[in-house]
Design a protein around this nucleic acid. Sequence first.
RNA 1: GACCCCAUCGUCCAGCCUGGUUAGGACACAAGCUUUUCAAGCUUGCGACACGGGUUCAAAUCCCGUUGGGGUCGCCA
Length: 422
Amino acid sequence: MKVRFAPSPTGYLHIGGARTALFNWMYAKAQKGQFVLRVEDTDLERSKKKFLDEILDSMKWLGLSWDEIYLQSERFDIYREYAEKLLTEKKAYKEGEAVILKMPQKQIKIYDLIRDEIIFDTATLKDQVLMKSDGSPTYSFACVVDDALMEITHVVRGEDHISNSPKQVIIYEALGFKPPKFAHLPLIMGEDGGRLSKRTGAVAVSDYRKDGFLAQGVVNYLMLLGWSPGPNKEIVNLEKAVESFSIKKVNKTSAVFSMDKLRWVNSQHIKQASTESITELLIPFLLEKGYLSEEFDRKRLENVVSLFKGRLATLADFLDWADFAFLENIDVSDENKKQFFNAESVKRFHLLSKKLSNVDPFTAQEAEKGFRDLVKELDIKAADLVHPVRVALTGKTIGPGLFETMEALGKEKTVCRLKQIS
RNA sequence: GACCCCAUCGUCCAGCCUGGUUAGGACACAAGCUUUUCAAGCUUGCGACACGGGUUCAAAUCCCGUUGGGGUCGCCA
């Protein structure tokens, strides 16, 4: 059993393409078969090296490894040879430099693992161009020659290819090859019901990576579009998914892409992961943002990460929520100043600052003790001090528990930020 | 337009193959709990078998039609 994913390097790896790759990959693993990556770069004009690199990169990032890889641009001789053969057998004819296949009149039956038999009549099909005038093969011809020579047993691809199937079966038959079985996956639609496009959100896999999604999160969400790991089961990793994967259980209806659900699935994977691994993933983001210098205290960073791990939908969220832990000086909006800072609260900040400077060790628990003491001395409600202090320390009105935040921030910064306000 | 594919909550998925369920879960939404804010978490609620005919004691499930949605009609892939 052997399947393939055949992207064209004329653009980035699209989220829909990634789903096709994923289903091929899962099917191969589940069946203990082979997974071939075939780069369809016959369009020399539009194919670009940078796109190829990006596609390979994204595939690796997602964890979709391949057993074999081919470039069609290196196989032109082969296509030419088979075109010649069809010419000699008079199954094809020339028109200028182009080679064109005569379309026989008949019924074509293709077997689709997901939809069962699909029957076409070639009466509605035109003769098919096999080799273009410039000597390059057409998509269908190169695809069929390769699928046959690479001994692909199952062609798993998007539903938009259903109508290519009868044309390709005709080519298989002309060449004397046995057609494979097919599985046409339902398409992924945008939230507006139309085709998935940039307007409805990012479409390139690399964009999701940049936006702070985990590979596991993207993969997990994608597999949920058209398939289910089992009743009441949604959050799974690749290995688990492969255990229960069945191509026959893939459904036939196109699915609408939901950014909300993706974010939720991603958040579940962040929650499940260890603080160490999330920290590791976060480091490049922090470095790029300038929040981290080459040398940093890893333990302290992990402390901050653990504070936020349970509330992140994406890694990028961390950059927004936890900026106060990395910036030298925080910004407090005029609105917040007006609401939380006044003569009275500033006095309290200074008292608290003094109190906390004596706390040792500076843990959340000890900081809270000092804080509560002061609240008692002042005879005020804790909440009346909690909120202004949070703003003073983080510049935000929302965030994790105040004392955990203090600990993560460290004694020096905590004390300093409170003292600074005047 | 022709050909092809499809049809369960707003969205994703389970149930369909092998008819008998108060049609289940998740996201989103709403309420409550918790709380130091916001999230998270927990509880509850809202919410669907497109329509019409068959077949059958019985249809979301099988068959036909209608309607609706989608895809393809390139010397792009």
